[in-house]
Simulated assay, not measured.
Amino acid sequence: MNVTGHEARIIQARQGWTITRDNGATILSRRSPLGERFSVRAEDDETIRRAVRRHAVGFDPASHVRDLIREPRPDWPGHADIGALTADARAIQTMIRRLDHALTTDPTGDERRELRESACAQIADYWRSIARGKAPATTGRETRRAVLDHMADALRGQWKTGRRERARDERLESQSPLPLLKAGEPDRLIEAHEYMLDMLWPDHDTTA
Protein backbone atom coordinates (compact mmCIF):
# COMPACT_ATOMS: atom_id res chain seq x y z
CA MET A 1 0.00 0.00 0.00
CA ASN A 2 1.48 3.35 -1.04
CA VAL A 3 0.17 5.29 2.00
CA THR A 4 2.32 5.65 5.10
CA GLY A 5 0.84 5.58 8.59
CA HIS A 6 1.47 9.32 8.97
CA GLU A 7 -0.23 10.06 5.66
CA ALA A 8 -3.19 7.86 6.59
CA ARG A 9 -3.70 9.85 9.80
CA ILE A 10 -3.70 13.11 7.86
CA ILE A 11 -6.01 11.78 5.13
CA GLN A 12 -8.55 10.09 7.39
CA ALA A 13 -8.41 11.65 10.86
CA ARG A 14 -7.56 15.23 9.90
CA GLN A 15 -9.06 15.63 6.42
CA GLY A 16 -11.99 13.19 6.51
CA TRP A 17 -11.24 11.11 3.39
CA THR A 18 -11.64 7.34 3.19
CA ILE A 19 -8.90 5.02 1.92
CA THR A 20 -9.67 1.84 -0.03
CA ARG A 21 -7.83 -0.50 -2.42
CA ASP A 22 -8.87 -1.47 -5.93
CA ASN A 23 -6.83 -3.85 -8.10
CA GLY A 24 -3.54 -2.70 -6.62
CA ALA A 25 -4.42 1.00 -6.65
CA THR A 26 -5.12 3.18 -3.62
CA ILE A 27 -8.36 5.17 -3.75
CA LEU A 28 -9.05 8.24 -1.62
CA SER A 29 -12.70 9.31 -1.54
CA ARG A 30 -14.80 12.03 0.02
CA ARG A 31 -18.28 13.38 -0.66
CA SER A 32 -18.87 16.94 -1.81
CA PRO A 33 -21.47 19.19 -0.15
CA LEU A 34 -24.05 18.06 -2.76
CA GLY A 35 -23.19 14.40 -2.23
CA GLU A 36 -20.95 13.62 -5.20
CA ARG A 37 -18.29 11.07 -4.28
CA PHE A 38 -14.99 12.49 -5.53
CA SER A 39 -12.02 10.13 -5.70
CA VAL A 40 -8.27 10.30 -6.16
CA ARG A 41 -6.66 7.17 -7.60
CA ALA A 42 -2.99 6.35 -7.08
CA GLU A 43 -1.54 3.34 -8.87
CA ASP A 44 1.01 1.21 -7.03
CA ASP A 45 3.92 2.90 -8.79
CA GLU A 46 2.73 6.40 -7.77
CA THR A 47 3.05 7.94 -4.31
CA ILE A 48 -0.16 9.19 -2.74
CA ARG A 49 1.26 12.69 -2.44
CA ARG A 50 2.04 12.78 -6.15
CA ALA A 51 -1.46 11.56 -7.02
CA VAL A 52 -3.10 14.16 -4.77
CA ARG A 53 -0.90 16.92 -6.18
CA ARG A 54 -1.79 15.84 -9.73
CA HIS A 55 -5.50 16.19 -8.95
CA ALA A 56 -5.03 19.45 -7.02
CA VAL A 57 -3.20 21.05 -9.94
CA GLY A 58 -5.32 19.57 -12.70
CA PHE A 59 -8.84 19.88 -11.29
CA ASP A 60 -10.91 22.48 -13.18
CA PRO A 61 -14.40 23.24 -11.78
CA ALA A 62 -15.87 24.29 -15.14
CA SER A 63 -14.63 21.15 -16.89
CA HIS A 64 -15.92 19.03 -14.02
CA VAL A 65 -19.43 20.49 -14.36
CA ARG A 66 -19.39 19.94 -18.13
CA ASP A 67 -18.33 16.32 -17.64
CA LEU A 68 -21.11 15.75 -15.11
CA ILE A 69 -23.72 17.09 -17.51
CA ARG A 70 -22.41 15.13 -20.49
CA GLU A 71 -21.94 11.84 -18.63
CA PRO A 72 -24.03 11.77 -15.45
CA ARG A 73 -22.86 9.34 -12.79
CA PRO A 74 -25.10 7.45 -10.36
CA ASP A 75 -24.10 9.71 -7.45
CA TRP A 76 -24.17 13.04 -9.27
CA PRO A 77 -26.49 15.74 -7.86
CA GLY A 78 -28.87 15.74 -10.81
CA HIS A 79 -31.44 17.92 -9.02
CA ALA A 80 -29.03 20.87 -8.84
CA ASP A 81 -28.88 23.77 -11.29
CA ILE A 82 -25.72 24.98 -13.01
CA GLY A 83 -24.99 27.51 -10.26
CA ALA A 84 -25.21 24.88 -7.54
CA LEU A 85 -23.10 22.42 -9.53
CA THR A 86 -20.45 25.09 -10.08
CA ALA A 87 -20.37 25.95 -6.38
CA ASP A 88 -20.10 22.25 -5.56
CA ALA A 89 -17.23 21.81 -8.03
CA ARG A 90 -15.40 24.73 -6.43
CA ALA A 91 -15.92 23.09 -3.05
CA ILE A 92 -14.34 19.92 -4.44
CA GLN A 93 -11.41 22.00 -5.68
CA THR A 94 -10.97 23.46 -2.19
CA MET A 95 -11.29 19.99 -0.68
CA ILE A 96 -8.52 18.50 -2.83
CA ARG A 97 -6.31 21.59 -2.42
CA ARG A 98 -6.61 21.34 1.34
CA LEU A 99 -5.69 17.67 1.24
CA ASP A 100 -2.68 18.46 -0.95
CA HIS A 101 -1.45 21.14 1.42
CA ALA A 102 -2.16 19.01 4.50
CA LEU A 103 0.09 16.29 3.07
CA THR A 104 2.87 18.70 2.19
CA THR A 105 2.56 21.37 4.89
CA ASP A 106 3.42 21.17 8.56
CA PRO A 107 1.39 23.81 10.46
CA THR A 108 3.59 23.25 13.51
CA GLY A 109 6.80 24.21 11.68
CA ASP A 110 8.79 27.28 12.66
CA GLU A 111 8.06 28.95 9.32
CA ARG A 112 4.40 29.31 10.38
CA ARG A 113 4.95 29.87 14.08
CA GLU A 114 3.71 33.47 14.22
CA LEU A 115 0.44 32.72 12.42
CA ARG A 116 -0.09 29.55 14.48
CA GLU A 117 0.42 31.48 17.72
CA SER A 118 -1.92 34.23 16.55
CA ALA A 119 -4.68 31.72 15.72
CA CYS A 120 -4.19 29.95 19.06
CA ALA A 121 -4.38 33.30 20.85
CA GLN A 122 -7.75 33.94 19.21
CA ILE A 123 -8.99 30.53 20.38
CA ALA A 124 -7.84 31.29 23.93
CA ASP A 125 -9.50 34.71 23.81
CA TYR A 126 -12.79 33.07 22.81
CA TRP A 127 -12.65 30.77 25.86
CA ARG A 128 -11.89 33.76 28.08
CA SER A 129 -14.93 35.55 26.69
CA ILE A 130 -17.08 32.56 27.68
CA ALA A 131 -15.59 32.59 31.18
CA ARG A 132 -16.41 36.31 31.47
CA GLY A 133 -19.96 35.68 30.31
CA LYS A 134 -19.51 37.70 27.11
CA ALA A 135 -20.10 34.73 24.80
CA PRO A 136 -22.52 31.79 25.12
CA ALA A 137 -21.14 28.34 25.83
CA THR A 138 -21.30 26.01 22.81
CA THR A 139 -20.56 22.38 22.02
CA GLY A 140 -19.23 20.34 19.08
CA ARG A 141 -19.14 21.99 15.67
CA GLU A 142 -20.95 25.05 17.07
CA THR A 143 -17.85 25.80 19.12
CA ARG A 144 -15.60 25.69 16.08
CA ARG A 145 -17.97 27.99 14.16
CA ALA A 146 -18.13 30.37 17.12
CA VAL A 147 -14.32 30.50 17.30
CA LEU A 148 -14.14 31.35 13.59
CA ASP A 149 -16.70 34.13 13.99
CA HIS A 150 -14.97 35.46 17.11
CA MET A 151 -11.61 35.45 15.32
CA ALA A 152 -12.97 37.27 12.26
CA ASP A 153 -14.72 39.89 14.41
CA ALA A 154 -11.58 40.48 16.46
CA LEU A 155 -9.37 40.91 13.39
CA ARG A 156 -11.89 43.25 11.75
CA GLY A 157 -12.07 45.23 14.98
CA GLN A 158 -8.30 45.64 15.07
CA TRP A 159 -8.38 46.83 11.46
CA LYS A 160 -11.16 49.38 12.03
CA THR A 161 -9.62 50.84 15.18
CA GLY A 162 -6.13 51.03 13.71
CA ARG A 163 -4.68 48.58 16.27
CA ARG A 164 -2.61 46.76 13.67
CA GLU A 165 0.88 46.61 12.16
CA ARG A 166 0.96 46.26 8.38
CA ALA A 167 4.37 44.55 8.38
CA ARG A 168 3.12 41.96 10.90
CA ASP A 169 -0.09 41.42 8.92
CA GLU A 170 1.94 40.72 5.79
CA ARG A 171 4.09 38.21 7.66
CA LEU A 172 1.01 36.42 8.98
CA GLU A 173 -0.55 36.31 5.51
CA SER A 174 2.68 34.92 4.03
CA GLN A 175 2.56 32.04 6.54
CA SER A 176 -0.88 30.83 5.39
CA PRO A 177 -0.97 27.03 4.91
CA LEU A 178 -2.98 27.60 1.71
CA PRO A 179 -2.68 30.22 -1.03
CA LEU A 180 -4.91 33.19 -0.22
CA LEU A 181 -7.80 33.74 -2.64
CA LYS A 182 -9.35 36.89 -1.22
CA ALA A 183 -8.30 40.43 -2.08
CA GLY A 184 -8.12 43.40 0.23
CA GLU A 185 -7.84 43.82 3.95
CA PRO A 186 -8.70 42.57 6.47
CA ASP A 187 -10.15 39.69 4.42
CA ARG A 188 -6.74 38.24 3.51
CA LEU A 189 -5.59 38.28 7.13
CA ILE A 190 -8.82 36.61 8.26
CA GLU A 191 -8.50 33.98 5.51
CA ALA A 192 -4.93 33.13 6.60
CA HIS A 193 -6.13 32.62 10.18
CA GLU A 194 -9.06 30.48 9.01
CA TYR A 195 -6.73 28.27 6.96
CA MET A 196 -4.44 27.83 9.95
CA LEU A 197 -7.40 26.93 12.15
CA ASP A 198 -8.46 24.38 9.50
CA MET A 199 -5.06 22.72 9.83
CA LEU A 200 -5.05 22.75 13.64
CA TRP A 201 -8.77 22.03 14.15
CA PRO A 202 -10.15 20.31 11.03
CA ASP A 203 -13.86 20.21 10.29
CA HIS A 204 -14.53 17.09 8.21
CA ASP A 205 -18.00 18.28 7.18
CA THR A 206 -16.81 21.60 5.76
CA THR A 207 -15.31 21.57 2.29
CA ALA A 208 -15.79 25.13 1.12
Rank of each mutant, 00 (worst) to 15 (best):
A91N: 06
E111P: 06
S118V: 14
D110K: 14
D88L: 06
Q122T: 10
R128I: 05
A89I: 09
I123H: 10
I92M: 02
R132G: 09
T104K: 04
A87S: 14
M95N: 00
R98E: 01
S129D: 06
I123S: 08
T108G: 11
A119S: 14
E111L: 12
D125P: 01
T139D: 00
Y126E: 07
R128N: 11
T86F: 03
A102K: 06
A102L: 06
A135D: 06
K134V: 04
R112V: 15
G133A: 04
T139H: 00
R116N: 15
I96H: 05
T104I: 05
L103D: 04
A124G: 15
R90Y: 07
M95V: 00
R98T: 01
R97W: 08
A91I: 05
P136H: 06
A89E: 01
T86Q: 10
A124P: 00
I123D: 07
D125V: 09
T105H: 11
G83Q: 02
G109V: 10
A121K: 12
L115Y: 05
S118W: 13
Q122M: 15
R112N: 13
Y126H: 11
L99V: 04
A91K: 02
A89F: 03
T94R: 11
I82Y: 12
R128E: 13
E117T: 13
A131I: 00
A119M: 12
Y126R: 07
S129W: 02
T94I: 10
P107I: 00
L103C: 01
